[in-house]
């Protein structure tokens, strides 16, 4: 019988060292073959599958005591799942955490890439629900594996063709498929296609972890990442009509906030850290309050 006392001891960053080594080997392989999905023996994590277990395992395996961690979900540091994952690593690894993109050495994200360009030495870890870009066209793993191996990606364009035939333009708005290093078609995880260009030749290392589906893949720094399109229907990102209502930023991804039940709404930065930075620097949007005034 196990007594409760000696039960709850966990290794640094939760995973045992053997597991970390296994995951690091998968990561190295992923870096060596950009965009290729490396199978790995994903572990059960103390948070549910689908809630970032892949990202958490990758982060746990690369995190050292000197790292500074930032966790975002939907671009924000204060969404519940981001808070929960950040608290998890504070508890099991006792690492420094931050909300500042520039200060972080490791950033775990769900559904967004920070607005501030990432720099050399930073690692962006994505949480991935379904790593297989062909999955909804072909449900069988045995078949999709073959399609990747033989570079048979015609089906991917069939989907884009159908979008245009039906809607007049490509109707994929997030998880927009990309080709990495002129070889593998890859799912960038459900980030809005607005963020796709940020992956291209990024200075940071980008790692993708899918826990439930047991896959790790990577984009090494400075790698070519091209969003799939047609010559006469080139890839385009979302454009917003107004700047952020709080900080006045343009060319950033905005969230819609419903203000009342009469159709009142405002658009604000999805990247909360970026918005705060700008407001601290004195930028004020249409509905924002200048920081200096607010402080008084």
């Amino acid at each position: 019988m196990t007594s409760a006392g000696n039960l709850a001891t966990y290794n640094f960053a939760y995973l045992d060292e053997q597991t970390k080594r296994m995951i690091r080997r998968a990561i190295l392989k992923a870096i060596a073959i950009p965009g290729y999905q490396v199978p790995f023996a994903s572990r059960e994590m103390p948070m549910p599958y689908g809630w970032g277990t892949g990202g958490v395992q990758v982060t746990a395996s690369i995190l050292g005591p000197d790292d500074t961690l930032k966790v975002i979900d939907q671009g924000a540091d204060d969404t519940t799942n981001a808070v929960s994952i950040r608290a998890f690593f504070q508890k099991v690894a006792n690492v420094k955490v931050t909300t500042k993109t520039g200060e972080a050495t490791v950033i775990q994200t769900r559904h967004r890439i920070p607005e501030e360009p990432l720099t050399e030495g930073q690692v962006l870890v994505y949480q991935v629900p379904i790593p297989e870009p062909l999955r909804f066209l072909e449900p069988r793993e045995t078949e999709t594996r073959k399609m990747h191996a033989l570079e048979e990606y015609g089906l991917m364009h069939v989907k884009l063709y159908e979008d245009i035939a039906r809607n007049g333009h490509i109707a994929t708005t997030y998880a927009y498929p990309v080709k990495v290093g002129e070889r593998y078609v890859m799912d960038p995880s459900p980030i809005p296609k607005f963020d796709n260009p940020k992956m291209h030749r990024s200075q940071a290392l980008q790692l993708f972890g899918a826990g439930r589906e047991k896959r790790i893949y990577a984009i090494p720094p400075h790698t070519e990442v091209v969003s799939l399109d047609f010559e006469d229907y080139p890839f385009e990102i979302q454009k917003f009509e107004k700047p952020c209502a709080l900080c006045g930023a343009e060319n950033v991804y905005l969230d819609e906030v419903v203000l009342d039940d009469k159709g009142g709404r405002m658009f604000v930065c999805s990247d909360t850290d970026h918005c705060e930075d700008r407001r601290n620097a004195g930028h004020v949007g249409e509905l924002g309050v200048a920081q200096t005034e607010a402080a008084e």
């Binding site: 689908g50 799942n81 708005t173 997030y174 607005f194 969230d255």
Partner: peptide, 22 residues
Amino acid sequence: VQATGFVEHLKLPHYVDFQAEL
């Protein structure tokens, strides 16, 4: 454990994707 996690993950915020669809 896998199934429940993925079904229940629909509770997590998806407003960035939803914004794109909207």
